[in-house]
Design a protein around this nucleic acid. Structure first.
Length: 425
RNA sequence: GGAGAGAUGGCAGAGUGGUCGAAUGCACCGGUCUUGAAAACCGGCAAGGAUGCAAGUCCUUCCAGGGUUCGAAUCCCUGUCUCUCCGCCA
């Protein structure tokens, strides 16, 4: 949600950001509606004041009872009418604003699609195989560790079933990632619900605009989370945080559920794009002026993982056409996938500034001077397990189709060092 | 699924029709005391909005939505959620 006062003061900044996202500028429309709302509101408040004082006078004087009743009755009718008018305008305003994306940081490069994203860093050497590297699907299927045909029988397409050593690697990775985030980078570890109310999704910005991407259940109309950014960021919704407790840094593993409505035809097989996937997430609630450095901290946390795994990666600055609804600035981290011979997104780290905190009414209070303001929220994947698995399988494959386990993961996979036909060597 | 209870400020918890935005305690903030800290004592302490240069003034909010009333945290209706007990269950 946007700050109406900011829009009124900086209509051009607001409109420029919308234009950059290829959307229609609308500050003048917003300001007009808000002024109409204020007209009704101000009049209503004056009449309410009158009505209140009449009621209070009732206690003292018991004369003129009937005339007071009559006056109040008349006032009430006017007030009701103004309440309706004001509410109408306010609803109109909110409906408009809830669909408007966050204001872009001035650092976001202009562009139409992911082709215009800017590579800002590359790290790690791409391995030269002296054979043609296989893709993860072929590798895992040959080893008997991935069975998406069974998954189709049980659940349909875009689901998968991992077996034995691959399942173990999956589990080990989760622990490895959570340890990295919590022990080395100070993110507090959580276990959170994977079903949430619509209010929580409105808070982080998935609703109302992206309903079709979500799975809705028939239990209390709860939704399956598309990312644990939703429960983590909403941990402090509608509450006031003591400035002393800032920054708040959270990490968790959850499954994520996405309808992938607009993705038909791409990455249909394997672990690349599924309706259900595991992901370890980072969320930071930050002082507004420190959110840039907190984003850097998140990025280092993710980089640390990839360095330990010796997986080549690059960092990409998302352009205005590719960046998400709630974000003001996003860096994607892409890892090398030899089977596809390209980098693919494995993490997306976003600074959502005060966009989400306004929507969920999360505030910081400085108890020394009574000041109350909105924190900045940041979220980042650290990391998407399925895609990380792909990269490990493909980068660590041997010519005979076996997979070496990255040394750092040995402690997390019961000493397993190589995956070979589902048997340890 | 059956039976009952409840929803009040950051938390706990009073308050059943008229200065109640709301006692009290804890927490928090400021101060006194102390070498420092603790304790004790003194003072402060809800949020959102409108208006104004400002001081201030006003409006709204005691789960949500309706209703009764000149007046509702308090009475009535509906909804939502939570808790306890029983049953079932990882």
């Amino acid at each position: 949600m946007h700050d109406i006062k900011f829009i009124k003061k900086n209509p051009l900044v607001f409109d420029d950001s919308l234009k950059k996202r290829n959307l229609q500028p609308c500050s003048s429309k917003i300001i007009k509606i808000h002024n109409e709302y204020l007209e009704h509101l101000n009049l209503k408040q004056k009449l309410l004041e009158e009505k209140n004082s009449l009621s209070k006078s009732f206690v003292r004087k018991k004369d003129n009872v009937e005339s007071i009743k009559k006056l109040v009755y008349e006032l009430k009718a006017k007030i009701d009418n103004l309440t309706d008018l004001a509410e109408l305008k306010l609803n109109e305003l909110n409906e408009l604003m809830m669909f408007l994306p966050n204001i872009l940081s001035k650092n976001v490069p202009r562009g139409d699609s992911e082709k215009d994203n800017k590579i800002i860093k590359e790290h790690g050497e791409i391995k030269n195989f002296n054979f043609k590297p296989k893709n993860h699907l072929e590798l895992a299927e040959n080893l008997g560790l991935l069975d998406y045909k069974k998954a189709i029988k049980i659940s349909g397409s875009r689901f998968s079933i991992l077996k034995s050593d691959l399942a173990k690697l999956h589990r080990g990775l989760i622990n490895f990632l959570l340890d990295n985030n919590s022990l080395e980078f100070g993110f507090e570890e959580y276990v959170v619900p994977e079903l949430v109310k619509s209010e929580a999704l409105e808070g982080t910005g998935q609703l109302p605009k992206f309903e079709e991407d979500l799975f809705k259940t028939n239990f209390n109309n709860l939704y399956l989370i598309p990312t644990s950014e939703v429960p983590l960021t909403n941990l402090n919704r509608e509450s006031i945080i003591n400035k002393k407790d800032i920054p708040l840094k959270y990490t968790t593993f959850t499954n994520c559920f996405r309808a992938e409505a607009g993705a038909s035809g791409t990455d249909t097989k394997g672990l690349m794009r599924e309706h259900q996937f595991g992901k370890v997430e980072l969320v930071t609630i930050s002082e507004p002026h420190k959110s840039e450095s907190e984003l850097n901290n998140m990025i280092s946390c993710v980089e640390n993982i990839l360095k330990k795994l010796s997986i080549p990666y690059r960092i990409v600055e998302l352009c205005s056409g590719d960046i998400g609804f709630s974000s003001s600035y996003t860096l994607d981290i892409e890892i090398w996938m030899p089977g596809q011979n390209k980098y693919r997104e494995v993490s997306s780290c976003s600074n959502c500034t005060d966009f989400q905190s306004r929507r969920m009414k999360m505030r910081i209070k400085n108890f020394e001077n009574g000041e109350i303001y909105y924190p900045h929220t940041l979220n980042g994947s650290s990391l998407a397990i399925g895609r990380l698995l792909i990269s490990i399988l493909e980068n660590y494959q041997n010519e005979d189709g076996t997979i070496k386990i990255p040394p750092i993961l040995k402690d997390y996979t019961n000493g397993l060092s190589i995956i070979s036909n589902g048997k340890k060597i």
